Amino acid sequence: MSWKEHIAVRIARTTGLQVTRRGGRPTLARGSSRLLERPVFLLSSVRSGSTLLRMMLNSHSAVYAPHELHLSKLRVGFEDHYVTDSMNELGWDELEVTHLLWDRVLDAALHRSGKQVLVEKTPHNVFMWSRIARCWPDARFLFLLRHPAAILDSWRRARPRQTPQQAEESVARYLTRLAEARRALPGHTVRYEDLVADPATQTQEICAFLGLEWEPAMVEYGRFRHGSIKAGLGDWTERIRSGSVQPAREVPTDVELPEPLDELARKWGYPARRAG
């Protein structure tokens, strides 16, 4: 069995998707009701540079990478047993009709943009990666990593009212689910530190993964319009408003990590910052 076939079986076991066989080989079944083809989901923690990467991708002539869409909050509800029964007769429950809504909204947005490839980057998607894989079996995934200590430092500055323990717990929830998604899903991994150090090389590799020709203008994302910059839609700080790639911020030496986050950092190849 090839690695793609192994991936198909592994995703199916995790998400509940049906595996069919074509030419004797296992493959994920694609719902005939989907309009959007091969969407791309950028999975990351908060404070990982996902807004920067989405703006660079949105600067490509073929890629539409909008602001954060918060699909997890876009839901369909059946008001009574009549609609429940009628939808069940069609083979649809609330979950599937919600997926139909997601698909229609994203497909319409992509067509309105005039581009060919959609990229969605809401950080909260890490908590529902299995639903995304179930909704779009042909989805592609980009994983954005950053040193957990840098994420924690950035989160504390963005959320100064949280206690240190609350900040650690918030970051840990995102990174734990991101690690889980990376184990289960195929995709391409990007490190924030590499992206800001050499944006040309990193965007070339992303374009190769997506089957697109690289466009040098992607690096100069400030030349293009990317919609509103405000809280709730992505990063809103002066660094992203500058329109140019900024060097990675130095992480203060006093930022230490609890054991679970430090272990994750080491697994991802980052230097240890264990508390105590």
Results as ranks from 00 to 15, higher is better:
V9F: 04
V9M: 12
R10A: 08
I11D: 01
A12H: 08
A12C: 04
L17M: 09
Q18G: 03
T20Y: 05
L28G: 01
L35P: 00
S45D: 06
S48F: 03
T51I: 04
L53G: 01
L53S: 06
M55Q: 13
S59T: 05
A62F: 05
Y64F: 15
H70Y: 15
L74F: 11
F78Q: 04
D80I: 10
H81K: 13
M87S: 01
M87T: 02
N88Q: 09
E89S: 04
L90H: 08
L95I: 12
R104A: 12
V105S: 03
L106M: 13
L106C: 09
R112T: 07
V117S: 01
L118S: 08
E120I: 14
P123M: 11
M128P: 00
A133R: 05
W136Y: 06
R140Q: 12
F141E: 07
F143E: 04
L144V: 04
L145E: 14
R146I: 00
H147K: 01
P148D: 14
A149V: 02
A150N: 06
R157T: 13
A158R: 15
T163Q: 12
P164G: 12
A167G: 14
Y174I: 01
D198R: 14
P199N: 13
T201V: 07
Q202E: 15
Q202R: 15
E205Q: 13
G222F: 11
S228C: 00
K230S: 09
G234D: 13
T237K: 09
G243S: 09
A248N: 12
E250I: 06
D254L: 05
D254P: 00
D262H: 07
A265I: 05
R266H: 02
P271D: 13
R274Y: 09
